[in-house]
């Protein structure tokens, strides 16, 4: 398993201009998964990924928060999108980044899920979907 290959797949799938952007996305999705997956599923996923990726699957809490949902999951990904930062991009009070960040985050998340699915057996994929927040599981299946 090659970390570089994983990033290259995500970069190509998402049409990202740079490797750094793809890596930031992969890291954010893996960290969100670490927040929500129970121990056995987390270990199973880690066993299929290159060591450079598994470091992001570490969770500080012993158990996932049962109320962690798709909104929180998205939060980890949206934080990596290019946003206004110190610049004001608002148009008449509407911030375009904010308005479309959810759709873009889901599109990007699917790129990572797609790369992960190539590394997981169908049974492992089904196990993951069963423990992901419902909407996130749906995005994983669609990827």
């Amino acid at each position: 398993m090659d970390y570089t290959q994983l990033l290259a797949e995500v970069q190509e799938d998402g049409s990202f201009p740079g490797r750094e952007e793809a890596e930031a996305l992969v890291v954010s999705v893996l960290m969100a998964m670490a927040e929500v997956l129970p121990g056995p599923q987390l270990d199973a996923l880690a066993s299929q990924l290159p060591p450079e990726a598994t470091v992001y699957l570490r969770r500080t809490r012993s158990q996932p928060d049962p109320l962690f949902d798709s909104h929180l999951f998205l939060g980890w990904v949206v934080s990596t999108l290019d946003a206004t930062g110190a610049r004001d991009k608002t148009v008449g009070g509407l911030d375009l980044t904010a308005a479309y960040s959810g759709e873009e985050a889901i599109r990007r998340m699917r790129c990572v899920f797609s790369a992960l699915k190539r590394r997981l057996e169908p049974a492992q994929q089904r196990e993951l979907v069963a423990v992901l927040p419902e909407e996130v599981g749906g995005w994983f299946l669609e990827a």
Binding site: W76, V78, S101
Partner: peptide, 16 residues
């Protein structure tokens, strides 16, 4: 509470 759009410092990961 992370503001995912305008606060790119104090993110979920930063707090975690």
């Amino acid at each position: 509470q992370p503001c995912v759009t305008f606060n790119r410092i104090n993110t979920y990961d930063w707090y975690r």
